[in-house]
Design a binder for these strands. Structure first.
Length: 339
DNA sequence: AAGCTTGTCAACCGCCACCAC
DNA sequence: CGTGGTGGCGGTTGACAAGCT
């Protein structure tokens, strides 16, 4: 479309913000909310473009921002989610309360990426450098599985974004108090001075669920990284609303059965052994080779034992991927969103 | 102490999706 | 359906700090 940059009007200031400017912006938003960012600078008496104001607010001035060193837990979460989602910093940020996508991105680029490289792990694929040796084995299934999970996570995040929007609209329609517009990812919302209680997230709960009617899309390669297209989930965008409806409307306990059934169907499709009754392990087992490893240890299935040889490498990475999968399989208690 | 290199991170840029008209 | 406005996202830049020679 070719829109000119928002700051190309003459006379607008760029560069670091002064404390006075911060104060003006903060005072204005606390009193009026940000409303339209485009018109905010003029109303707030700032010689800045709206975009600059929004960035300053979302990355620095917002009251719900935690600054300072990342904890070990946070580091692990970032690495795990990056393995799952790639450079989708905003998506990763939704799982790290009080951290901004910009902060996470910076931290990844300056610390974590280098650390992984030192460990011999490719920071893009999260594979160990000698992993290509195993590329012609069962790894492809594992990678495809992970890819599929990443696709679902993408869809889930889109679902949450949509629900947040709808929720917001609904509240507006219902003439509700402004605090309802404040959500965890406040950069995408109309923030209006919430109090402590109000800052509790009202984000809809969602789960990583699988619609029976949806085609399974398994791509050969794993984690989306380079793409700039945010709808590249290999899932038709028209299908996403259906998935959303399913995921959102079916958050009852009965879903567990459905999810597991569907999961098993899918595992059968890709010729994976499905967990038996009372031995539900699901994706985690698949990815980690647990079920195979278990067969190995019990000696009940010689064919599986032979196949397990190909998966030995995954035993080495078990903890790494297990951590990733724990994020998927469980609902993080410290996160407002759930898989 | 001065100059250079490397690391950090706030801020900017350009593209894209979404929405209203 | 096309167009323009707006906000959000991810990649990149550049100023400053810290460390090294």
């Amino acid at each position: 479309m070719g829109r000119s940059p928002c700051c190309d009007k003459g006379g607008l200031k760029k560069g670091p913000w002064t404390p006075e400017e911060d104060q003006k912006l903060l005072a204005y938003i606390e009193e009026h909310g940000h409303g339209s960012w485009r018109s905010l600078p003029e109303k707030a008496g700032l010689q800045r473009c709206g975009k600059s104001c929004r960035l300053r607010w979302t990355n620095y001035l917002r009251p719900d921002i935690k600054r300072g060193k990342f904890t070990l837990q946070e580091e692990q979460t970032i690495i795990q989610l990056h393995a799952l989602l790639g450079n989708r910093w905003s998506a990763i940020a939704t799982h790290l309360p009080k951290r901004t996508d910009n902060e996470i991105k910076n931290y990844w680029n300056t610390h974590l990426k280098k650390r992984l490289v030192k460990m011999g792990i490719d920071p893009v694929t999260h594979k160990h450098k000698n992993e290509t040796l195993y590329s012609s084995t069962g790894q492809s299934k594992n990678t495809a599985t992970l890819s599929h999970m990443a696709q679902w996570e993408s869809a889930r995040l889109e679902a949450e974004a949509r629900l947040a929007r709808e929720s917001k609209l609904l509240h507006i329609h219902n003439n509700s108090s402004p605090q309802h517009c404040f959500t965890h990812k406040s950069s995408s919302t109309n923030w209006t001075k919430p109090n402590q209680d109000q800052q509790q997230l009202e984000s809809p709960t969602s789960t990583l669920t699988f619609s029976e009617n949806l085609p399974l899309v398994i791509t050969p390669l794993g984690i989306p990284t380079e793409n700039r297209n945010r709808n590249d989930n290999n899932i038709e965008s028209s299908e996403i609303p259906a998935m959303i409806e399913f995921a959102v409307s079916s958050s009852t306990s009965s879903d567990v059965t459905l999810v597991k059934d569907t999961e098993h169907d899918w595992m059968r499709q890709i010729n994976c052994p499905t967990p038996t009754e009372g031995n539900e392990e699901g994706f985690t087992s698949l990815l980690l080779g647990d079920s195979i490893g278990r067969s190995h240890s019990t000696g009940k299935n010689d064919e599986a034992t032979a196949a397990a040889v190909d998966y030995n490498y995954y035993e080495d990475n078990k903890n790494y991927w297990n951590s990733i999968l724990n994020l998927v399989d469980s609902s993080p208690s410290d996160s407002p969103t759930m898989f």
